[in-house]
Simulated assay, not measured.
Amino acid sequence: MTPHYTESSLRQPRTPHIRMPPFTGKEGWETWRAQFEAIANRYGWDEEERLNQPRLEGAAAQFVFSQLSPMC
């Protein structure tokens, strides 16, 4: 029996459940960003994958979601 592949099964993320720790604003932005870039480069994330990764919490989320204009 040959395996059956669907279009959605072929579009699975290339990275195994790698999850960046959230940026809260308590740690240094440069350190967090360097860690993010190292992981993104290691796993070959394209722009879309990079945009789907970051999580903001605490003061960082409060600033972004209350002070910045939406991009959409």
Rank of each mutant, 00 (worst) to 15 (best):
R50C: 07
H17F: 00
E7M: 01
E27L: 04
R14V: 10
P3H: 05
I18Q: 11
Q62V: 12
Q12H: 06
R42H: 07
Q67V: 09
Y43P: 03
W32V: 03
A59R: 14
S69M: 14
A40M: 00
A59L: 10
S69P: 15
T24F: 04
A40N: 00
L10G: 01
I39G: 04
S9V: 01
A38W: 01
P21C: 03
Q35G: 13
E49N: 01
A59C: 10
L10Y: 02
R19S: 03
R55H: 10
P16R: 11
R19E: 05
W32P: 03
T2P: 15
R11M: 00
A38D: 07
Y43C: 04
A38P: 06
H17W: 01
E7S: 09
D46N: 06
P54Y: 04
S66H: 15
K26T: 13
E49P: 02
A38V: 09
M71C: 10
M1V: 12
V64H: 02
T15H: 12
T31L: 12
Q62S: 13
Q67I: 07
P22A: 03
E47N: 04
G44F: 04
L56G: 02
P22Y: 03
N52E: 15
I18A: 13
R50V: 01
S69C: 14
M20T: 11
E30N: 09
E48N: 08
N41M: 04
I18V: 12
R42C: 08
T6V: 00
E37A: 10
V64A: 00
H4A: 15
M1E: 12
M71W: 11
F23L: 01
A34F: 02
A38G: 07
T31R: 14
E49K: 01
C72Q: 09
Q53K: 08
F36R: 02
I39W: 06
M1R: 08
G28C: 13
C72F: 09
R19Q: 09
P13N: 02
L10M: 01
Q12E: 04
P16E: 11
G25P: 06
P13Q: 00
S8P: 05
R33C: 15
R33A: 15
E49A: 03
T2Q: 15
E49H: 03
E7V: 00
R55S: 12
L51A: 07
S69G: 13
E47A: 06
F36G: 00
L56A: 02
P3G: 02
M20A: 12
E57H: 12
R42K: 08
Y5G: 06
